[in-house]
Nucleic acid binder design. Structure first.
Lengths: 252, 252
DNA sequence: CGCTGCCTTGATCTTCTTCAAAACGTGTGG
DNA sequence: CCACACGTTTTGAAGAAGATCAAGGCAGCG
């Protein structure tokens, strides 16, 4: 413990070309829901998008802003949050390349329900909400894929509700770490590293607890040898044991 | 308090015709997402559906069952739940006529993530998941409406996550009652009545607490004159005051 | 009537929050 | 390379909120 390494999370910052015009077609073509579309169509769809780059920590939009655009993560990580009146931020979701956010239902709310913030260097593709609707109406395949993604996220959110309701903080943190590792995990010498800057505060926001408690739990898990962690990063060393905690195998 | 009335919630049971062939077209035509479709198309779509009736308490499908069908609530109320290993049930959502449930994303999970149970007498329209996909692919308007509904529910679920994380039990219960009243409220002499059988256990499941605590909070709210309640029913008498509690205006 | 579920209420105990202070890591500028 | 300063993390002690366990009350129904 004497010589703790620096954060093993790679900066992911020195890649300016990621948001360049050159690669837009490739990025858009690789998006899960445009997959399989003929190149000519992708070319046309491409016209409607414009790319925007964000610095880590930069806010893409705030809760309550008029919901005019829909975004797609092209590269980097975006966190979706909700504010509480007490000033605390709840981390609702973490988005990775291919994920959609912003204004999906033009008919419903006129404002964004969440705040979106760049967690790393981010390249996002933005499209006018109405234009996106037109695309969906034109290509039913795409609409079905977007629907799939949305209902998958609904499912995850409902699962989250269940876990917040019935599980202890330790279980929730264990589960959240596993979920994050599933999405962002990278095998490294420190363990299965969650490839993003992740503070105790973030973790607290995701599990509905405080930084102090999150810190205590993380320390305990580390003492037990299940994880490995430092400033702004966490790596899992014993996935199975962590899963047992998350599912509440011995305790409750 | 000496002479407490019987449950003012209407049974909603003696309407067997609701699930008859005669009214199917009308019901399907009134579904939010088929609205505006030409009658001839509705007639065709109608062919793919079959109706199924359920008794109160009857289970429509369990978590983990193979997800082969998609359902639409035609009449009655359906509750969506998730089980926990401790045996506790979390009430994830309450569905009213027009709501879709069951297998939406045929690509994703092969099993239902939730358990669906009839809360009242229910008439549901069922359709093979693949057939429904075909309909969505054929009528983009419908697909967009379903997408809207789904993302609205996603939004609600995320809001629920926020509230579970940051609010007290009293606030959560107040909020849940308001939400239910919004969906199912009926002005009556006892107050704004939530038109469905709603036990303390249900309420506990929706707010992530125990029946004992839910009961305590309900009693307190009743003592303060904000609500009116009895066995399996709740009515709101002071919406504004309840909203203040839900939003946490004074307390935290 | 008496049975079966709901609902209420009390006492105790655990978990988590809160508040606060100290230690640590990291980047900065000397 | 060192020292400082800032943000993050750790840790402690006290307190509050809610869970748990359990007993009793009340309503509706056979």
């Amino acid at each position: 413990m004497s010589e703790r390494r620096r954060s093993p999370v790679e900066p992911e910052s020195i890649e300016p070309h990621m948001c360049s015009l050159d690669l837009r077609l490739e990025i858009i073509g690789k998006l899960p829901f445009f997959e399989g579309l003929p190149p000519a169509e992708i070319e046309r769809i491409n016209q409607s998008f414009r790319e925007i780059g964000y610095q880590p920590g930069e806010t893409i939009f705030f809760t309550g802003d008029p919901a005019v655009r829909l975004y797609v993560v092209a590269s980097g990580k975006v966190k979706l949050m909700r504010h509480t009146f007490t000033g605390q931020d709840i981390l609702v979701d973490i988005l990775t390349p291919g994920d959609v956010f912003g204004s999906l239902s033009t008919l419903g709310d006129e404002t964004y329900p969440n705040t979106a913030q760049a967690q790393t260097m981010v390249c996002a593709l933005a499209i006018n909400a109405e234009d996106f609707r037109r695309i969906l109406a034109t290509y039913p395949t795409v609409a079905l894929k977007v629907l799939d993604m949305t209902s998958a996220r609904l499912n995850e959110a409902q699962e989250m509700v269940r876990r917040l309701s019935a599980h202890s903080v330790e279980q929730r943190i264990a589960y959240t770490l596993l979920k994050l590792a599933e999405k962002l995990g990278e095998p490294q010498d420190v363990g299965l590293l969650i490839q993003m800057p992740l503070s105790r505060e973030d973790l607290a926001g995701m599990t509905g607890t405080t930084t102090a408690t999150a810190s205590r739990v993380i320390s305990q898990l580390q003492r037990d040898g299940l994880i490995n962690s430092g400033r702004q990063w966490v790596a899992i060393t014993d996935v199975e044991a962590l899963r047992e905690i998350a599912e509440g195998v011995g305790a409750h």
